[in-house]
Design a protein around this nucleic acid. Structure first.
Lengths: 115, 115
DNA sequence: ATATCATATGAACAATGATTCATATGAATG
DNA sequence: CATTCATATGAATCATTGTTCATATGATAT
């Protein structure tokens, strides 16, 4: 007759299961890198501005009360991580959100922050 | 007869709306701080382990192949941000996820990373 | 009580990253 | 074509942070 301890010994332990279910190292790095983008209040502010509409660099800088260079550097980061896209309009370059994931991630975070 | 340009001039511009809809500075800092927690692959790994079950510090250290001190330091960060809780069991201290938000945030991030 | 095991803590170090300043690029306009 | 306006880039600086090493705390078992 099978006793419970014997059955248990054939199953994987929680530790083994945790190890087995762990995503690949590379995926986890990518995930951390994604959250790094959201881990700066300047970038978060930029994303919130772009939730409303597309804007040029100088408008974003004005709303945030920061200099143009700082915003341009951060837009570069956002561009590289495919969270924003851009198009030229006359002299200006208009930035906008690349897709709906940004809003989803911000909203999910806000839910935990609680407001 | 109301013409469209007159109505438009009475409405707020996208820039004004973006400014108005921006959450308070303090909230945005809290949000950035939350994402900072997820912005490190060691902490992400710890959270993934804890998705499975509660574990003691030494088990987590073993699974991740890191020394005990590093894990303890990171658990401190996770504890301070209310993402994990803990209880004593004999000599060991067992850590577990504080609530379901952790899984929700990780899943949302994974969706963008794409796997 | 003392030795042991699990965890926490503090200091030090290296690495990363955000902002500023100065300057370069590059398109548009006169 | 030269000037101007908008944006990008590079170097420098300052702050933050993850890890390690050494050690402290604190509970348990002999």
């Amino acid at each position: 007759m099978e006793n419970e301890s014997k059955v248990l010994s054939q199953q994987e332990t929680p530790l083994e299961k945790a190890e087995k279910d762990m995503p690949d190292e590379e995926i986890l790095y990518d995930l951390a890198d994604l959250f790094k983008i959201f881990a700066d209040s300047t970038r978060i502010k930029i994303l919130y501005v772009l939730l409303e509409s597309e804007f040029c660099v100088c408008d974003i800088a004005q709303v945030l009360g920061m200099n143009q260079s700082a915003i341009s550097h951060q837009l570069r980061v956002l561009k590289q991580s495919k969270l924003v896209k851009y198009r030229r309009e006359g002299r200006a370059i208009l930035y906008s959100l690349a897709d709906g994931h940004v809003r989803a991630i911000l909203d999910q975070g806000m839910e935990h922050v609680g407001e």
